[in-house]
Design a protein around this nucleic acid. Structure first.
Length: 958
RNA sequence: GGGUGCGUAGCUCAGUUGGUUAGAGUACUUGCUCGACACGCAAGGGGUCACAGGUUCGAAUCCUGUCGCACCCACCA
């Protein structure tokens, strides 16, 4: 069979993908052997494979394939994530192009569109992973929103709710006006941007010409100001305390209060308080029982509630009508102009301020107070902390443990509700009759449904106060109490008329009616992800898969979702299974471009892994990524890496061609017993390469087991290219091309053994090429995928062979060096004389004469014991031997002299290091004796070498 | 403000607990189409290991500080 000179991956990859699939080799089922389980970090359904995915999944595949070959029941569960906001955005954009708006078609229709889209794009990313060679059990594909996973989500929510861990409260959350939803702290990105700090003068009430100046970066929020705060110890403002200020343009009368929170050194030392739009201000407001006024709505437009005073009554001399309904930035412009006109703008300064942006659409978020569902984190975090301290989960590399612990220690309650449609709708039902004020603001059409005049947004606002007065007929006193403790609208397990249930309850136990309304919010996409390691095995059902595979062995992921995902999975695992979901967490770096920048579509610097697979081959992509996958470090990839990996694949391809070209059937049949039965027939070079291979097996195994794919790749590259190809293959040629059938057979067998083990060692990293060669070599139906991974065998270590071959290699290299330096033609053979330093050396060199002859192009080797040096020769020293390359007619004596002198110089420099050591009394006294001995020997060697070289120079000039 | 990581050859990076002449790939120079491979072979040049101190007989490696880069957390009127 003709085998091509270069490795052509395309057809070969296709062939083996089909083969593996046909043989059902990825599949795993609970059985009597030990499982090794990984659950995939589910990529978003929107996703198409990028380098980050490629790396992440490659690393998983390496471990899975490695464990499979080591006899484990390897199970890798694939799946996708519904991706919440991200996915909704994508579909919204598509629909918009067709002129369809989400708001117009309504929730039900929109969700139909979402599912339709999901069906069409399907699991395209998973098929891309398949192409990458990922050996996932495709029979186990899960989706976070499929029936089973949704069941798990509902179950978890209901259990947590019933335990009292889930509650609805009002908080300031980061709100994305574009996506129309609350965002979690981990879903926003902060960036410093150039902005301005405006100094605005607020007139003091009833004191003409007197002002208090506040500094702000967001002047438009002043429309919702309900106080001004100063530090109680600030002498400058003490006389203002208790007085009121007049909010410019709005003319709302607001109190001047004292609060420790204010830093007298910042700005003017006086702060405007906008409780509805700033976390600190909300806290301050709470401490001082201040009312809150929404100035900005969910679309980031100015609200009409700013026309009210602190008692909820419209302000008579309100002057900011033209701001109502304007976008926040437009309103800011107008506002600043107006303040300038009124001479209330003291000054403006350039200022760098942090802008918080939505991680999905990069819109600047708006801090808004809104009703959201929260999961209490305190106890769950404590348990996770304990578990981490007990090392129930270990982090690789370990450095990630600390930030993880720190995060847990400072954990706030998790906002789990999102005001979007794509996701798991919260399984809570409100009785229309009993749930009362809890229902407020749930749906946009709610006010009309209840025949409530005006806008109702949230308790505590002007709107709802009006509603409470008019509809609930509460007394002003009662309302004040409710507003004061912010409890209105909060829900927990004790709230009347609220029911947690997967399906709509039949009857309300309080009133007997069946008029329910479901909470419209959906859960944070990470809520379902947090249950993933359990839900993929059928939890909450006690399935046999769950019992067999859970807890899983390792989670492999990038550090960007350590908090968002990893921590939460651990907490949920502890909560519901009483056990962490995995023993190891292996955290890898981020893939960056050649300039060290994070790859992103907006930067246009993404390298498409599919393109790389096309251009260089999938194995090359895999090897390059593994090679760069250094623990704890981000990696830069560029074509250079892929080229290197492609060349490596080709090298492997060609060495296997070489082996197969030199085989006869006998060798194939005899393996592996031949070597065992004829260990005597092994030559030094065989023993050497087998010993080196054995060491490589040990080190590669260790590297993979300690999650260091880079180390494993480097070791294999080094062994295959620099030891096996560069030396053993060359050594073996003289034997393979010779006439001694016995030694020929031995060589063939050793080649097969080495090659086969190399293929197995490399298979987890480069599955395609190794399978192809493996099958060509043995022509047997069993896949390399399920062959045994090579095992380290102490008895294979051969120190003598190692030392002796090293000497042979040095001799060859020395002769080659001389030939090259003296411009000896490639085709010219040379004679050499070796002055032997010891009997062992003579024996070694004599036994390996054929290799020196062929690899260094030597015609004849003579040994000499006399002190006489051959003239017209170039010399080199290897160990205690002197090598003379006879170069009559070819040698340039002057050049040789220079060459030898430079060698001597090098030795002198090197000797200095050792001389310094040896002349240091403390070194002799304190260093360990072996080191002293080593240094002494080394120095002796160097001195001998120098002496010989000097003598050789003398001989030259004679 | 708190933390983490990094700074080694022109470039991209290895370098395990301190102890061979600090390595690899690539780029560079020179020579090779001879029966695996020019995606190759052989030989070579190239580094004050960011800087300054300290510990040690001995430091790229451990400690302290400085500078530069990257990232994370918190605050920010």
């Amino acid at each position: 069979m003709e085998i091509s000179k270069t490795y052509e991956p395309k057809e070969i990859e296709k062939k083996w993908l089909n083969f593996w699939e046909e043989q059902n080799l990825y599949h795993s089922e609970p059985n009597n052997s030990k499982p090794f389980t990984i659950v995939i970090p589910p990529p978003n359904v929107t996703g198409s494979l990028h380098m980050g995915h490629a790396l992440n999944n490659l690393l998983q595949d390496i471990i899975i394939r490695f464990k499979r070959m080591n006899g484990f029941n390897s199970c890798w569960v694939p799946g996708t994530d519904h991706g919440g906001i991200a996915t909704q955005n994508v579909v919204e954009r598509i629909l918009k192009k067709a002129g369809i708006l989400r708001e117009n078609i309504g929730r039900k229709k929109f969700l139909e569109e979402m599912w339709k889209w999901r069906k069409e794009t399907g699991d395209s990313i998973l098929s891309q992973l398949n192409k990458l060679g990922c050996s996932c059990d495709w029979d186990k594909i899960s989706f976070t929103m499929d029936e089973k996973r949704s069941k798990a989500v509902n179950h978890a929510f209901i259990k947590l709710y019933e335990k009292g861990l889930i509650y609805r409260g009002e908080r300031i959350v980061d709100w994305c006006p574009r996506c129309g939803t609350a965002l979690n702290e981990s879903e926003v990105e902060q960036e410093d941007e150039k902005g301005k700090l405006w100094y605005i003068k607020y007139p003091i009430q009833n004191e003409n010409g007197k002002f208090v100046t506040v500094a702000t970066t967001r002047p438009e929020t002043m429309l919702g100001d309900t106080a001004i705060a100063v530090n109680p110890n600030d002498e400058r403002y003490k006389k203002l305390l208790g007085k009121n200020a007049v909010l410019p343009l709005v003319n709302r009368i607001i109190p001047i209060i004292a609060d420790e929170m204010v830093d007298p050194k910042f700005g003017t030392g006086a702060v405007k308080i906008t409780p509805a739009h700033d976390r600190n201000d909300a806290e301050t407001a709470r401490r001082h029982n201040l009312i809150l006024i929404h100035a900005i709505d969910k679309e980031a437009k100015i609200k009409n509630s700013i026309i009210n005073d602190l008692n909820g009554q419209p302000i008579k001399n309100f002057e900011a009508n033209d701001l109502v309904g304007k976008d926040r930035y437009e309103a800011r412009k107008i506002l600043i102009e107006k303040l300038k006109e009124k001479e209330l703008l003291e000054k403006e300064e350039e200022y760098i301020l942090p802008i918080t942006r939505c991680y999905r659409c990069a819109t600047a978020t708006e801090p808004l107070i809104s009703k959201q569902w929260f999961l209490k984190m305190n106890d769950m975090a404590k348990r996770a902390l304990e578990s981490a301290k007990n090392e129930e989960t270990k982090f690789f590399p370990e450095k990630w443990l600390k930030p993880y612990l720190l995060w847990l220690e400072n954990l706030k309650d998790w906002c789990i509700s999102r005001q979007i449609w794509w996701g798991h709708q919260i399984p809570l039902w409100y009785c229309m009759n009993c749930a009362g004020e809890h229902i407020l603001g749930l749906y946009q059409d709610m006010p009309e449904k209840f025949n409530i005049p005006g806008e109702v947004v949230s308790p505590g606002t002007m709107g709802s106060i009006k509603w409470m007065l008019e509809t609930l007929k509460l007394t002003p006193q009662k309302i004040k109490e409710k507003v004061k403790d912010y409890e209105v609208g909060n829900i927990n397990i004790n709230s009347k008329g609220v029911f947690a249930s997967e399906t709509q309850p039949e009857k309300c136990p309080h009133c007997g009616k069946s008029d329910f309304i479901r909470d419209p919010d959906v859960l944070d996409t990470w809520f379902s992800s947090a249950l993933w390691p359990m839900s993929v095995f059928g939890w909450p059902e006690e399935t046999k898969e769950l019992k067999y595979y859970y807890p899983t062995n390792v989670l492999i992921t990038g550090h960007e979702i350590l908090y968002l995902w990893v921590a939460r999975m651990i907490m949920m695992g502890l909560e519901f299974r009483n056990h962490v979901p995995y023993h190891d967490v292996y955290i890898h770096g981020i893939v960056r471009d050649s300039k060290g920048k994070k790859m992103s579509k907006s930067l246009g610097n993404v390298i498409d892994p599919l393109g790389i697979m096309e251009k260089f081959g999938t194995d090359a992509l895999r090897f390059a990524l593994a090679y760069q996958g250094i623990p704890g470090r981000d990696m830069q990839v560029s074509d250079e890496n892929f080229l290197m990996a492609r060349n490596f694949a080709n090298k492997l391809w060609n060495v296997s061609r070489f082996v197969m070209m030199n085989l006869n059937q006998q060798a194939v049949i005899l393996i592996p017993t031949c070597r065992e039965n004829n260990h005597d027939s092994l030559e030094l070079t065989d023993k050497w390469i087998l010993s080196e291979l054995n060491l490589t097996i040990k080190n590669v195994t260790n590297a993979i087991e300690s999650y260091n794919p880079a180390e494993a790749s480097r070791l294999l590259y080094e062994f295959i290219w620099s030891k096996y190809c560069d030396w053993y293959v060359e050594f073996s040629k003289t034997r393979l091309y010779g006439n001694d059938e016995k030694t020929k057979l031995t060589t063939q067998n050793v080649h097969i053994e080495i090659l086969e083990k190399i293929l197995k060692l490399l298979h987890p990293i480069m599955p395609f090429i190794t399978e192809e060669i493996f099958q060509n070599l043995r022509q047997q139906p069993k896949s390399i995928m399920i062959s045994d991974y090579p095992k380290y065998d102490e008895s294979e270590t051969d120190k003598t062979a190692d030392e002796e071959i090293r000497e042979v290699i040095e001799v060859i290299t020395a002769i080659r060096n001389i030939r090259s330096e003296m411009n000896v033609k490639q085709s010219d053979l040379v004679d050499i004389i070796i002055r032997i330093g010891s009997d062992e050396s003579e024996k070694t060199i004599n036994e390996n004469k054929q290799y020196i002859n062929s690899l260094a192009k030597v015609k004849e080797i003579k040994f000499s014991k006399t002190s006489e040096k051959p003239k017209l020769s170039a010399s080199a020293i290897v160990g205690n031997c002197e090598i003379f390359v006879l170069l009559e007619g070819k040698i340039d004596l002057e050049k040789e002299k220079i060459r030898l002198e430079s060698l001597i110089n090098k030795i002198i420099q090197e000797s200095k290091v050792y001389e310094n050591k040896i002349s240091n009394k403390n070194f002799l006294l304190k260093a360990n004796p072996e080191e002293v001995e080593r240094v002494k020997q080394k120095l002796q060697e160097l001195q001998n070498k120098k002496k010989k070289l000097e003598e050789n120079i003398k001989t030259l000039s004679q």
